[in-house]
Design a protein around this nucleic acid. Sequence first.
DNA 1: TCGCCATTGTCAGCGAGCTGTCAGCCACGC
DNA 2: GCGTGGCTGACAGCTCGCTGACAATGGCGA
Lengths: 221, 221
Amino acid sequence: MRSLLVEDEPRIAADVAAALANAGFLVDTAVDGEDAWFRGDTEDYDLVVLDLGLPHMDGLTVLKRWRAAGRVMPVLLLTARGTWAERVEGIDAGADDYLPKPFRMEELVARARALVRRAAGHGAPVIEAGRLRLDARQMRVTADGVPVPLSPLEYRLVAYLMHHKGRVVPAPELLEHLYGDDDAREANALEAVVTRLRRKLGAAAIETRRGFGYLIADGAP
Amino acid sequence: MRSLLVEDEPRIAADVAAALANAGFLVDTAVDGEDAWFRGDTEDYDLVVLDLGLPHMDGLTVLKRWRAAGRVMPVLLLTARGTWAERVEGIDAGADDYLPKPFRMEELVARARALVRRAAGHGAPVIEAGRLRLDARQMRVTADGVPVPLSPLEYRLVAYLMHHKGRVVPAPELLEHLYGDDDAREANALEAVVTRLRRKLGAAAIETRRGFGYLIADGAP
DNA sequence: TCGCCATTGTCAGCGAGCTGTCAGCCACGC
DNA sequence: GCGTGGCTGACAGCTCGCTGACAATGGCGA
Protein backbone atom coordinates (compact mmCIF):
# COMPACT_ATOMS: atom_id res chain seq x y z
CA MET A 1 0.00 0.00 0.00
CA ARG A 2 1.39 3.29 -1.05
CA SER A 3 0.30 6.45 0.67
CA LEU A 4 0.92 10.14 0.34
CA LEU A 5 0.97 12.22 3.46
CA VAL A 6 0.49 15.95 3.01
CA GLU A 7 1.21 17.83 6.20
CA ASP A 8 3.34 20.90 6.80
CA GLU A 9 3.68 20.67 10.55
CA PRO A 10 6.81 18.52 11.00
CA ARG A 11 5.93 17.00 14.32
CA ILE A 12 2.50 15.84 13.24
CA ALA A 13 3.90 14.67 9.94
CA ALA A 14 6.46 12.52 11.69
CA ASP A 15 3.91 10.96 14.00
CA VAL A 16 1.42 10.21 11.27
CA ALA A 17 4.09 8.86 8.99
CA ALA A 18 5.27 6.54 11.71
CA ALA A 19 1.76 5.33 12.43
CA LEU A 20 1.03 4.69 8.77
CA ALA A 21 4.34 2.92 8.31
CA ASN A 22 3.51 0.76 11.27
CA ALA A 23 0.22 -0.12 9.68
CA GLY A 24 2.04 -1.38 6.62
CA PHE A 25 1.90 1.63 4.38
CA LEU A 26 4.72 3.00 2.34
CA VAL A 27 4.66 6.69 3.09
CA ASP A 28 5.64 9.57 0.84
CA THR A 29 5.50 12.97 2.44
CA ALA A 30 4.76 16.36 0.93
CA VAL A 31 4.98 19.52 2.96
CA ASP A 32 3.27 22.02 0.70
CA GLY A 33 0.39 22.15 -1.71
CA GLU A 34 2.44 22.49 -4.87
CA ASP A 35 4.48 19.45 -4.11
CA ALA A 36 1.44 17.49 -3.03
CA TRP A 37 -0.48 18.28 -6.16
CA PHE A 38 2.41 17.31 -8.39
CA ARG A 39 2.96 13.99 -6.70
CA GLY A 40 -0.68 13.10 -6.49
CA ASP A 41 -1.04 13.88 -10.16
CA THR A 42 1.92 11.91 -11.35
CA GLU A 43 2.22 9.04 -8.91
CA ASP A 44 -0.17 6.28 -8.14
CA TYR A 45 -1.26 6.19 -4.50
CA ASP A 46 -3.62 3.88 -2.68
CA LEU A 47 -4.34 6.56 -0.15
CA VAL A 48 -3.79 10.24 0.48
CA VAL A 49 -3.85 11.84 3.90
CA LEU A 50 -4.35 15.52 3.28
CA ASP A 51 -4.08 18.39 5.70
CA LEU A 52 -6.16 21.38 4.71
CA GLY A 53 -3.96 24.20 5.95
CA LEU A 54 -0.98 24.25 3.65
CA PRO A 55 1.55 26.71 2.30
CA HIS A 56 1.53 27.67 -1.38
CA MET A 57 -1.65 25.87 -2.34
CA ASP A 58 -4.59 25.16 -0.10
CA GLY A 59 -5.46 21.53 0.50
CA LEU A 60 -8.94 21.94 -0.88
CA THR A 61 -7.57 23.37 -4.08
CA VAL A 62 -5.19 20.46 -4.40
CA LEU A 63 -8.02 18.04 -3.91
CA LYS A 64 -10.27 19.74 -6.41
CA ARG A 65 -7.54 19.77 -9.01
CA TRP A 66 -6.91 16.10 -8.57
CA ARG A 67 -10.54 15.27 -8.93
CA ALA A 68 -10.87 17.55 -11.91
CA ALA A 69 -7.99 15.69 -13.48
CA GLY A 70 -9.73 12.39 -12.86
CA ARG A 71 -7.56 11.19 -9.99
CA VAL A 72 -9.71 8.87 -7.94
CA MET A 73 -7.50 7.67 -5.10
CA PRO A 74 -9.16 7.78 -1.67
CA VAL A 75 -8.44 10.95 0.26
CA LEU A 76 -8.63 11.34 4.01
CA LEU A 77 -8.86 14.96 5.09
CA LEU A 78 -7.37 16.32 8.26
CA THR A 79 -9.42 19.31 9.27
CA ALA A 80 -8.86 21.86 11.97
CA ARG A 81 -11.03 21.84 15.01
CA GLY A 82 -14.60 22.83 14.61
CA THR A 83 -14.30 24.09 11.10
CA TRP A 84 -17.46 22.49 10.09
CA ALA A 85 -17.73 24.38 6.83
CA GLU A 86 -14.38 23.02 5.75
CA ARG A 87 -15.50 19.49 6.27
CA VAL A 88 -18.57 19.87 4.18
CA GLU A 89 -16.62 21.64 1.53
CA GLY A 90 -14.03 18.89 1.67
CA ILE A 91 -16.56 16.16 1.19
CA ASP A 92 -18.15 18.11 -1.59
CA ALA A 93 -14.74 18.54 -3.20
CA GLY A 94 -14.39 14.79 -3.35
CA ALA A 95 -12.83 13.74 -0.08
CA ASP A 96 -13.75 10.28 1.06
CA ASP A 97 -13.51 10.86 4.76
CA TYR A 98 -12.32 13.47 7.17
CA LEU A 99 -10.76 13.46 10.59
CA PRO A 100 -10.88 16.50 12.83
CA LYS A 101 -7.76 17.49 14.72
CA PRO A 102 -6.77 16.50 17.22
CA PHE A 103 -7.17 12.82 16.56
CA ARG A 104 -5.80 9.60 17.89
CA MET A 105 -3.37 7.76 15.70
CA GLU A 106 -5.33 4.57 16.04
CA GLU A 107 -8.35 6.24 14.61
CA LEU A 108 -6.45 7.68 11.72
CA VAL A 109 -5.01 4.29 10.89
CA ALA A 110 -8.37 2.61 11.19
CA ARG A 111 -9.96 5.07 8.82
CA ALA A 112 -7.06 4.84 6.43
CA ARG A 113 -7.45 1.09 6.33
CA ALA A 114 -11.17 1.38 5.84
CA LEU A 115 -10.69 3.75 2.95
CA VAL A 116 -8.24 1.48 1.23
CA ARG A 117 -10.46 -1.49 1.74
CA ARG A 118 -13.41 0.35 0.35
CA ALA A 119 -11.45 1.57 -2.62
CA ALA A 120 -10.17 -1.93 -3.26
CA GLY A 121 -13.64 -3.39 -3.24
CA HIS A 122 -14.99 -1.10 -5.87
CA GLY A 123 -13.42 1.21 -8.35
CA ALA A 124 -15.16 4.15 -6.80
CA PRO A 125 -16.14 4.94 -3.24
CA VAL A 126 -19.59 3.48 -3.21
CA ILE A 127 -21.67 2.69 -0.19
CA GLU A 128 -24.57 0.31 -0.44
CA ALA A 129 -27.37 -0.19 2.01
CA GLY A 130 -30.43 -2.15 1.13
CA ARG A 131 -31.89 -0.82 -2.08
CA LEU A 132 -29.80 2.30 -1.86
CA ARG A 133 -26.47 2.98 -3.40
CA LEU A 134 -24.42 6.09 -2.91
CA ASP A 135 -21.64 7.09 -5.23
CA ALA A 136 -19.71 9.77 -3.39
CA ARG A 137 -17.59 10.66 -6.37
CA GLN A 138 -20.52 11.33 -8.63
CA MET A 139 -22.59 12.57 -5.72
CA ARG A 140 -25.38 10.40 -6.91
CA VAL A 141 -27.82 8.14 -5.17
CA THR A 142 -29.63 5.29 -6.83
CA ALA A 143 -32.52 3.23 -5.51
CA ASP A 144 -32.83 -0.19 -7.11
CA GLY A 145 -30.41 1.07 -9.72
CA VAL A 146 -32.56 4.03 -10.63
CA PRO A 147 -30.89 7.41 -10.14
CA VAL A 148 -32.74 9.63 -7.71
CA PRO A 149 -32.41 13.38 -8.16
CA LEU A 150 -31.64 14.93 -4.80
CA SER A 151 -31.17 18.47 -3.66
CA PRO A 152 -27.81 19.32 -2.05
CA LEU A 153 -29.22 19.22 1.42
CA GLU A 154 -31.00 15.97 0.83
CA TYR A 155 -27.84 14.47 -0.55
CA ARG A 156 -25.79 15.49 2.44
CA LEU A 157 -28.30 13.93 4.75
CA VAL A 158 -28.41 10.60 2.95
CA ALA A 159 -24.66 10.62 2.59
CA TYR A 160 -24.17 11.12 6.27
CA LEU A 161 -26.63 8.44 7.22
CA MET A 162 -25.09 6.01 4.79
CA HIS A 163 -21.62 6.74 6.06
CA HIS A 164 -23.01 5.67 9.40
CA LYS A 165 -25.33 2.99 8.15
CA GLY A 166 -26.53 0.56 10.75
CA ARG A 167 -26.17 3.15 13.48
CA VAL A 168 -28.87 5.33 14.98
CA VAL A 169 -27.85 8.91 14.38
CA PRO A 170 -29.34 11.34 16.90
CA ALA A 171 -31.17 14.30 15.46
CA PRO A 172 -28.85 16.88 17.08
CA GLU A 173 -25.87 15.21 15.48
CA LEU A 174 -27.58 15.39 12.11
CA LEU A 175 -28.47 19.01 12.65
CA GLU A 176 -24.90 19.80 13.51
CA HIS A 177 -23.56 18.08 10.45
CA LEU A 178 -26.11 19.62 8.15
CA TYR A 179 -25.99 23.14 9.45
CA GLY A 180 -23.16 23.50 11.93
CA ASP A 181 -23.60 24.74 15.45
CA ASP A 182 -23.59 28.35 14.48
CA ASP A 183 -26.89 28.88 12.82
CA ALA A 184 -29.39 26.76 14.62
CA ARG A 185 -32.47 25.55 12.85
CA GLU A 186 -35.69 24.28 14.24
CA ALA A 187 -35.63 20.57 14.68
CA ASN A 188 -38.54 20.57 12.32
CA ALA A 189 -36.32 21.58 9.42
CA LEU A 190 -34.68 18.20 9.69
CA GLU A 191 -38.00 16.43 9.77
CA ALA A 192 -39.06 18.27 6.67
CA VAL A 193 -35.99 17.13 4.81
CA VAL A 194 -36.54 13.57 5.95
CA THR A 195 -40.08 13.68 4.70
CA ARG A 196 -38.97 14.91 1.31
CA LEU A 197 -36.29 12.27 1.16
CA ARG A 198 -38.67 9.49 2.00
CA ARG A 199 -40.93 10.61 -0.78
CA LYS A 200 -38.07 10.18 -3.20
CA LEU A 201 -36.33 7.13 -1.79
CA GLY A 202 -39.28 5.22 -0.46
CA ALA A 203 -40.74 5.42 2.99
CA ALA A 204 -38.75 2.46 4.28
CA ALA A 205 -35.36 3.88 3.34
CA ILE A 206 -34.94 5.90 6.50
CA GLU A 207 -36.10 4.46 9.78
CA THR A 208 -37.12 6.52 12.75
CA ARG A 209 -36.16 5.54 16.27
CA ARG A 210 -38.63 7.63 18.15
CA GLY A 211 -36.88 9.61 20.84
CA PHE A 212 -33.43 8.67 19.54
CA GLY A 213 -32.82 9.52 15.94
CA TYR A 214 -32.71 8.26 12.38
CA LEU A 215 -31.16 5.23 10.83
CA ILE A 216 -30.39 3.73 7.48
CA ALA A 217 -30.23 0.02 8.02
CA ASP A 218 -27.18 -1.85 6.89
CA GLY A 219 -28.83 -3.92 4.20
CA ALA A 220 -26.84 -7.11 4.55
CA PRO A 221 -23.77 -6.66 2.36
CA MET B 1 -28.04 4.21 32.05
CA ARG B 2 -27.40 6.87 34.61
CA SER B 3 -24.53 9.26 34.16
CA LEU B 4 -22.96 12.11 36.05
CA LEU B 5 -21.55 14.97 34.06
CA VAL B 6 -19.08 17.21 35.88
CA GLU B 7 -18.35 20.33 33.89
CA ASP B 8 -18.28 23.94 34.98
CA GLU B 9 -18.40 25.55 31.58
CA PRO B 10 -22.15 25.90 30.93
CA ARG B 11 -22.05 25.76 27.18
CA ILE B 12 -19.98 22.62 27.03
CA ALA B 13 -22.04 21.08 29.80
CA ALA B 14 -25.23 21.69 27.87
CA ASP B 15 -23.82 20.17 24.70
CA VAL B 16 -22.42 17.11 26.38
CA ALA B 17 -25.56 16.59 28.41
CA ALA B 18 -27.62 16.72 25.25
CA ALA B 19 -25.37 14.26 23.49
CA LEU B 20 -25.45 11.82 26.38
CA ALA B 21 -29.18 12.16 26.74
CA ASN B 22 -29.55 11.40 23.09
CA ALA B 23 -27.47 8.31 23.52
CA GLY B 24 -29.96 7.09 26.06
CA PHE B 25 -28.26 8.23 29.24
CA LEU B 26 -29.98 9.94 32.07
CA VAL B 27 -27.74 12.86 32.89
CA ASP B 28 -27.14 14.49 36.25
CA THR B 29 -24.93 17.53 36.15
CA ALA B 30 -22.51 18.91 38.71
CA VAL B 31 -20.75 22.20 38.20
CA ASP B 32 -18.11 22.11 40.90
CA GLY B 33 -15.85 19.56 42.50
CA GLU B 34 -17.53 19.61 45.86
CA ASP B 35 -20.90 18.80 44.43
CA ALA B 36 -19.45 16.23 42.08
CA TRP B 37 -17.67 14.43 44.83
CA PHE B 38 -20.75 14.25 46.99
CA ARG B 39 -22.97 12.93 44.25
CA GLY B 40 -20.48 10.41 43.01
CA ASP B 41 -20.01 9.20 46.53
CA THR B 42 -23.66 8.88 47.40
CA GLU B 43 -25.39 8.03 44.13
CA ASP B 44 -24.99 5.08 41.88
CA TYR B 45 -23.84 5.98 38.39
CA ASP B 46 -23.07 3.85 35.39
CA LEU B 47 -20.72 6.45 34.03
CA VAL B 48 -19.04 9.67 35.06
CA VAL B 49 -17.79 12.26 32.61
CA LEU B 50 -15.36 14.41 34.53
CA ASP B 51 -13.77 17.66 33.54
CA LEU B 52 -10.46 18.30 35.21
CA GLY B 53 -10.57 22.06 35.62
CA LEU B 54 -13.15 22.71 38.30
CA PRO B 55 -13.92 25.29 40.96
CA HIS B 56 -13.65 24.37 44.66
CA MET B 57 -12.14 20.96 44.19
CA ASP B 58 -9.95 19.82 41.35
CA GLY B 59 -11.25 17.00 39.19
CA LEU B 60 -8.28 14.82 39.94
CA THR B 61 -8.82 15.19 43.64
CA VAL B 62 -12.44 14.23 43.21
CA LEU B 63 -11.45 11.16 41.26
CA LYS B 64 -8.82 10.12 43.78
CA ARG B 65 -11.26 10.47 46.63
CA TRP B 66 -13.83 8.35 44.89
CA ARG B 67 -11.34 5.62 44.22
CA ALA B 68 -10.01 5.83 47.73
CA ALA B 69 -13.55 5.35 48.95
CA GLY B 70 -13.93 2.28 46.78
CA ARG B 71 -16.18 3.80 44.12
CA VAL B 72 -15.55 1.87 40.94
CA MET B 73 -17.83 3.39 38.34
CA PRO B 74 -16.18 4.06 34.98
CA VAL B 75 -14.83 7.59 34.65
CA LEU B 76 -14.16 9.37 31.40
CA LEU B 77 -11.86 12.35 31.81
CA LEU B 78 -12.08 15.49 29.76
CA THR B 79 -8.63 17.01 29.64
CA ALA B 80 -7.45 20.26 28.21
CA ARG B 81 -5.68 19.96 24.95
CA GLY B 82 -2.11 18.88 25.05
CA THR B 83 -1.76 18.59 28.78
CA TRP B 84 0.02 15.33 28.71
CA ALA B 85 0.93 15.31 32.34
CA GLU B 86 -2.68 15.63 33.34
CA ARG B 87 -3.72 12.68 31.28
CA VAL B 88 -1.09 10.44 32.70
CA GLU B 89 -1.91 11.59 36.16
CA GLY B 90 -5.58 11.04 35.45
CA ILE B 91 -5.05 7.48 34.35
CA ASP B 92 -2.93 6.88 37.40
CA ALA B 93 -5.63 8.31 39.59
CA GLY B 94 -8.04 5.72 38.29
CA ALA B 95 -9.67 7.15 35.20
CA ASP B 96 -10.79 4.59 32.67
CA ASP B 97 -10.38 6.73 29.59
CA TYR B 98 -9.68 10.30 28.68
CA LEU B 99 -10.71 12.58 25.87
CA PRO B 100 -8.71 15.69 25.03
CA LYS B 101 -10.60 18.88 24.36
CA PRO B 102 -11.79 19.81 21.90
CA PHE B 103 -13.57 16.64 20.96
CA ARG B 104 -16.42 15.56 18.78
CA MET B 105 -19.63 14.65 20.48
CA GLU B 106 -19.84 11.43 18.56
CA GLU B 107 -16.51 10.38 19.90
CA LEU B 108 -17.47 11.19 23.44
CA VAL B 109 -20.64 9.19 23.09
CA ALA B 110 -18.82 6.28 21.49
CA ARG B 111 -16.32 6.17 24.32
CA ALA B 112 -19.01 6.54 26.92
CA ARG B 113 -20.79 3.56 25.45
CA ALA B 114 -17.58 1.60 25.29
CA LEU B 115 -16.87 2.29 28.94
CA VAL B 116 -20.30 1.24 30.06
CA ARG B 117 -20.04 -1.93 28.05
CA ARG B 118 -16.63 -2.71 29.38
CA ALA B 119 -17.76 -2.06 32.91
CA ALA B 120 -20.61 -4.48 32.42
CA GLY B 121 -18.17 -7.05 31.13
CA HIS B 122 -19.19 -6.96 27.51
CA GLY B 123 -16.73 -6.23 24.75
CA ALA B 124 -19.07 -6.12 21.78
CA PRO B 125 -21.81 -3.66 21.01
CA VAL B 126 -24.17 -6.60 20.98
CA ILE B 127 -25.44 -8.34 24.08
CA GLU B 128 -27.18 -11.67 23.93
CA ALA B 129 -29.28 -13.31 26.56
CA GLY B 130 -31.39 -16.31 25.81
CA ARG B 131 -33.57 -15.57 22.83
CA LEU B 132 -32.86 -11.88 23.13
CA ARG B 133 -30.25 -9.86 21.36
CA LEU B 134 -29.57 -6.18 21.86
CA ASP B 135 -27.73 -4.10 19.30
CA ALA B 136 -26.69 -0.83 20.90
CA ARG B 137 -25.68 0.76 17.63
CA GLN B 138 -29.00 0.20 16.00
CA MET B 139 -30.82 0.56 19.29
CA ARG B 140 -32.71 -2.51 18.33
CA VAL B 141 -33.75 -5.62 20.18
CA THR B 142 -34.44 -8.89 18.43
CA ALA B 143 -36.13 -11.97 19.83
CA ASP B 144 -35.23 -15.17 17.98
CA GLY B 145 -33.83 -12.94 15.28
CA VAL B 146 -37.05 -11.02 14.81
CA PRO B 147 -36.80 -7.28 15.42
CA VAL B 148 -39.06 -6.06 18.18
CA PRO B 149 -40.26 -2.45 18.00
CA LEU B 150 -39.78 -0.86 21.39
CA SER B 151 -40.63 2.52 22.79
CA PRO B 152 -37.74 4.59 24.18
CA LEU B 153 -38.61 3.76 27.76
CA GLU B 154 -39.00 0.09 27.03
CA TYR B 155 -35.69 0.07 25.23
CA ARG B 156 -33.88 1.68 28.11
CA LEU B 157 -35.32 -0.84 30.50
CA VAL B 158 -34.31 -3.88 28.47
CA ALA B 159 -30.93 -2.36 27.82
CA TYR B 160 -30.31 -1.89 31.49
CA LEU B 161 -31.42 -5.36 32.41
CA MET B 162 -29.34 -6.90 29.67
CA HIS B 163 -26.29 -4.95 30.70
CA HIS B 164 -26.79 -6.56 34.06
CA LYS B 165 -28.03 -9.89 32.80
CA GLY B 166 -27.99 -12.72 35.28
CA ARG B 167 -28.34 -10.32 38.18
CA VAL B 168 -31.51 -9.46 40.04
CA VAL B 169 -32.05 -5.75 39.67
CA PRO B 170 -34.12 -4.24 42.46
CA ALA B 171 -37.10 -2.19 41.45
CA PRO B 172 -35.86 1.00 43.14
CA GLU B 173 -32.63 0.76 41.19
CA LEU B 174 -34.56 0.43 37.97
CA LEU B 175 -36.78 3.35 38.85
CA GLU B 176 -33.80 5.45 39.64
CA HIS B 177 -32.08 4.53 36.42
CA LEU B 178 -35.12 5.09 34.28
CA TYR B 179 -36.33 8.31 35.80
CA GLY B 180 -33.64 9.73 38.04
CA ASP B 181 -34.32 10.89 41.55
CA ASP B 182 -35.96 14.11 40.68
CA ASP B 183 -39.32 13.18 39.38
CA ALA B 184 -40.43 10.13 41.25
CA ARG B 185 -42.97 7.81 39.73
CA GLU B 186 -45.25 5.30 41.31
CA ALA B 187 -43.68 1.91 41.46
CA ASN B 188 -46.57 0.83 39.32
CA ALA B 189 -45.25 2.75 36.37
CA LEU B 190 -42.38 0.32 36.23
CA GLU B 191 -44.70 -2.66 36.44
CA ALA B 192 -46.71 -1.28 33.58
CA VAL B 193 -43.63 -1.01 31.43
CA VAL B 194 -42.60 -4.53 32.31
CA THR B 195 -46.01 -5.82 31.34
CA ARG B 196 -45.82 -4.12 27.99
CA LEU B 197 -42.34 -5.46 27.46
CA ARG B 198 -43.35 -9.00 28.24
CA ARG B 199 -46.15 -8.76 25.75
CA LYS B 200 -43.61 -7.86 23.09
CA LEU B 201 -40.69 -10.05 24.10
CA GLY B 202 -42.53 -13.04 25.47
CA ALA B 203 -43.60 -13.57 29.05
CA ALA B 204 -40.47 -15.53 29.93
CA ALA B 205 -38.05 -12.86 28.84
CA ILE B 206 -38.15 -10.97 32.11
CA GLU B 207 -38.35 -12.89 35.35
CA THR B 208 -39.75 -11.53 38.56
CA ARG B 209 -38.10 -12.21 41.88
CA ARG B 210 -40.95 -11.46 44.17
CA GLY B 211 -39.90 -8.96 46.79
CA PHE B 212 -36.52 -8.37 45.18
CA GLY B 213 -36.67 -7.19 41.62
CA TYR B 214 -36.42 -8.18 37.99
CA LEU B 215 -33.97 -10.29 36.07
CA ILE B 216 -33.03 -11.19 32.57
CA ALA B 217 -31.40 -14.57 32.76
CA ASP B 218 -27.98 -15.02 31.25
CA GLY B 219 -28.98 -17.52 28.62
CA ALA B 220 -25.61 -19.20 28.32
CA PRO B 221 -24.10 -17.75 25.16
C1' DT C 1 -32.66 43.27 -14.97
C1' DC C 2 -36.63 40.69 -14.47
C1' DG C 3 -38.95 36.73 -13.59
C1' DC C 4 -39.18 31.83 -13.07
C1' DC C 5 -38.07 27.89 -10.58
C1' DA C 6 -35.87 24.97 -7.29
C1' DT C 7 -34.61 24.84 -2.68
C1' DT C 8 -35.45 24.99 2.00
C1' DG C 9 -37.00 26.92 6.56
C1' DT C 10 -41.13 27.74 9.16
C1' DC C 11 -45.72 27.05 10.64
C1' DA C 12 -49.74 24.70 12.05
C1' DG C 13 -52.54 20.87 12.33
C1' DC C 14 -52.86 16.13 12.76
C1' DG C 15 -52.47 11.59 14.32
C1' DA C 16 -50.16 7.84 16.22
C1' DG C 17 -47.84 6.12 19.78
C1' DC C 18 -46.11 6.61 24.46
C1' DT C 19 -46.65 6.43 29.31
C1' DG C 20 -48.49 7.32 34.05
C1' DT C 21 -52.37 6.27 36.77
C1' DC C 22 -56.05 3.72 38.47
C1' DA C 23 -58.90 -0.09 39.61
C1' DG C 24 -59.49 -4.57 39.82
C1' DC C 25 -57.62 -9.16 39.50
C1' DC C 26 -54.35 -12.89 40.25
C1' DA C 27 -51.17 -15.77 42.58
C1' DC C 28 -47.70 -16.64 45.68
C1' DG C 29 -46.32 -17.54 50.26
C1' DC C 30 -47.70 -18.16 54.76
C1' DG D 1 -57.94 -19.05 53.30
C1' DC D 2 -55.83 -14.61 53.59
C1' DG D 3 -53.04 -10.78 52.62
C1' DT D 4 -49.66 -8.60 50.06
C1' DG D 5 -47.22 -7.73 46.11
C1' DG D 6 -47.30 -8.01 41.46
C1' DC D 7 -49.97 -8.04 36.97
C1' DT D 8 -52.94 -6.17 33.57
C1' DG D 9 -56.45 -3.85 30.84
C1' DA D 10 -58.43 0.61 30.22
C1' DC D 11 -57.92 5.26 29.67
C1' DA D 12 -56.53 9.91 29.30
C1' DG D 13 -53.12 13.39 28.53
C1' DC D 14 -49.52 14.42 26.10
C1' DT D 15 -45.33 14.30 23.27
C1' DC D 16 -43.17 13.54 19.15
C1' DG D 17 -42.75 13.11 14.55
C1' DC D 18 -45.07 13.70 9.99
C1' DT D 19 -46.91 16.35 6.39
C1' DG D 20 -48.97 19.85 3.39
C1' DA D 21 -48.86 24.70 2.65
C1' DC D 22 -46.58 28.83 2.31
C1' DA D 23 -42.96 32.18 2.08
C1' DA D 24 -38.26 33.72 1.69
C1' DT D 25 -34.19 33.08 -0.71
C1' DG D 26 -31.07 32.65 -4.35
C1' DG D 27 -29.59 30.94 -8.81
C1' DC D 28 -30.13 31.04 -13.62
C1' DG D 29 -31.79 31.96 -18.06
C1' DA D 30 -34.13 35.12 -21.14
